[in-house]
Simulated assay, not measured.
Amino acid sequence: MAAQQSQGIQTLLEAEKEAAKIVQQARQYRVQKLKDARSEASKEIEEYKKAKEQEFKAFEASHAGTTSTTQAALDKETDAKLKEIEALFQSKKKDVVNTLLQRATQVQPELNRNLKKLQA
C-alpha cells in the first residue's frame, strides 16, 4: 500500500513537472509571438511611411510648377495694380493740392460760439 502511495505521489510529481514545462513553453511561445508581431508591425509602419513619403513627393513635384506660375501671375497683377494706383495718384495730385490750398486760404475768422455767449 505504501508503495502504491509513493508511486501515486511520484506520478503526480511527474505530472506537475510536465505541466510546468508546458506552461513554460506556452510563455515562451507567447513572448515569441509578441516579438514577431512587433517586428511585423514595425515593417508595415516603415512600408506605409515610405509609401506616404513617395506620395507626398509626387504631390509636391506636381504642384511645384503651379506654385511658381501662380507666383509669377500674382507678381504681374501686383505690378499692374501699382501702376494703376500711381497713374491715378498723378492725375488727382494737382486737384487735391488745389483743393487743400483753397480750403486753407478761405478761412473766415469769427468768434467761437462759447465766446459769443460770454460777451452777450
Results as ranks from 00 to 15, higher is better:
residue 17 K to D: 14
residue 17 K to F: 12
residue 18 E to S: 15
residue 18 E to D: 12
residue 19 A to Y: 02
residue 20 A to D: 07
residue 20 A to L: 07
residue 20 A to G: 05
residue 21 K to F: 13
residue 22 I to W: 11
residue 23 V to C: 09
residue 24 Q to C: 02
residue 25 Q to K: 08
residue 25 Q to W: 04
residue 26 A to Y: 05
residue 27 R to E: 14
residue 28 Q to A: 12
residue 28 Q to V: 06
residue 29 Y to K: 15
residue 29 Y to R: 14
residue 29 Y to I: 09
residue 29 Y to T: 11
residue 30 R to W: 12
residue 32 Q to G: 02
residue 33 K to T: 03
residue 33 K to Y: 01
residue 33 K to D: 04
residue 33 K to M: 06
residue 36 D to M: 03
residue 36 D to P: 00
residue 36 D to T: 01
residue 36 D to C: 00
residue 37 A to F: 05
residue 43 K to I: 02
residue 44 E to N: 04
residue 45 I to A: 14
residue 46 E to H: 06
residue 46 E to L: 10
residue 50 K to F: 04
residue 50 K to A: 15
residue 51 A to D: 07
residue 51 A to K: 10
residue 51 A to Q: 09
residue 52 K to L: 12
residue 52 K to S: 10
residue 52 K to F: 07
residue 54 Q to E: 15
residue 54 Q to I: 09
residue 55 E to C: 05
residue 55 E to W: 01
residue 56 F to C: 03
residue 57 K to N: 13
residue 59 F to P: 01
residue 59 F to D: 13
residue 62 S to K: 08
residue 67 T to W: 03
residue 67 T to C: 05
residue 67 T to I: 06
residue 68 S to R: 04
residue 72 A to H: 03
residue 75 D to L: 07
residue 77 E to D: 10
residue 77 E to G: 02
residue 82 L to F: 11
residue 83 K to N: 12
residue 85 I to R: 09
residue 86 E to C: 01
residue 87 A to Q: 03
residue 89 F to Q: 13
residue 89 F to D: 07
residue 89 F to H: 14
residue 89 F to C: 06
